[in-house]
């Protein structure tokens, strides 16, 4: 296999992520993304501030790991494109009569680690906000925390814990995808409840919003678990040992 060409394709992953997602995504999408203007400015600023350390951590990991293996950037680009597509792909849910989308962050965290998943999620969310009016620019920090940070770290943690407990990779990947999806929507519920609870308690409002998500996200979470398990299975089939070899500082699979 010729690695030289791939290793020197510096712009490839970024261009691929941008282009493939723009091609595949509809102009309007249906998501957990918090739209422009929904969060008051102090809350929007707080979520931005919370997301920054994770972004710095992820960018540092990208530099360190791509110095060791130039092709790693290609893998990050490919996973980033997958997250972009998955996170703006509306899927109708007959049980609820609404549409929603999986997030892809559980799968990404298994493959490239949670900190880098935050980075690629941020890029995907930024492109969606800029070109698809899918989520807002002022609410970008809140969306990064819910989808990037919560989804990635919950998915990664569940996968590592399950495999450490002896669960085979397939079911472990399923659980990672399932719980990362639900964690994303739980954090979105908390973000909305904490900023907009009014005279009601935050806890009461959080439960109320989370319950509204349930009819759509319970089946969607199961679908995301299946997608994550299928993706891991595919990679194990085509590149045996790839997931195991990705155990690197700052993240990677077990």
């Amino acid at each position: 296999m010729n690695h030289d060409g791939l290793g020197t394709t510096r712009l490839g992953p970024a261009l691929f992520a941008t282009a493939a997602l723009l091609l595949c995504c509809p102009p309007t999408a249906s998501a957990m993304h918090i739209s422009e203007g929904i969060l008051p400015a102090p809350w929007a600023g707080l979520w931005f501030a919370l997301s920054v350390p994770f972004l710095i951590w992820g960018l540092r990991d990208l530099r360190v790991r791509s110095e060791k293996e130039p092709m790693f950037k290609s893998l990050v680009g490919l996973v980033g494109a997958a997250v972009f597509v998955i996170s703006c792909m509306p899927i109708p849910v007959p049980t609820a009569g609404t549409c929603s989308h999986p997030c892809g962050t559980g799968m990404a965290a298994i493959l490239i680690g949670p900190s880098l998943t935050v980075v690629i999620t941020s890029i995907a969310l930024l492109l969606q906000a800029l070109f698809l009016a899918h989520g807002g620019l002022t609410t970008l920090g809140a969306d990064i925390v819910s989808m990037g940070v919560a989804g990635a770290f919950v998915g990664y943690g569940v996968f590592r814990l399950a495999t450490a407990l002896g669960v085979p990779r397939w079911p472990a990947a399923f659980l990672a995808g399932l719980l990362s999806d639900w964690a994303t929507y739980a954090v979105t519920s908390f973000e909305l409840a904490s900023a907009l609870h009014g005279s009601a308690s935050v806890g009461h409002t959080f439960v109320a919003v989370a319950i509204l998500f349930c009819p759509t996200q319970i089946p969607l979470g199961i679908l995301e678990g299946l997608i994550t398990a299928a993706a891991c299975r595919f990679i194990e089939t085509r590149r045996p040992g790839l997931i195991a070899s990705l155990k690197q500082p700052g993240g990677g699979a077990a």
Partner: peptide, 20 residues
């Protein structure tokens, strides 16, 4: 088949006085 951003997020935010 509206998305949950419309049926949940925006609906809740509008009722709370912060429409998108």
């Amino acid at each position: 088949w509206a998305g949950v951003d419309e049926t949940v997020v925006e609906k809740f935010a509008t009722e709370a006085g912060h429409p998108p």
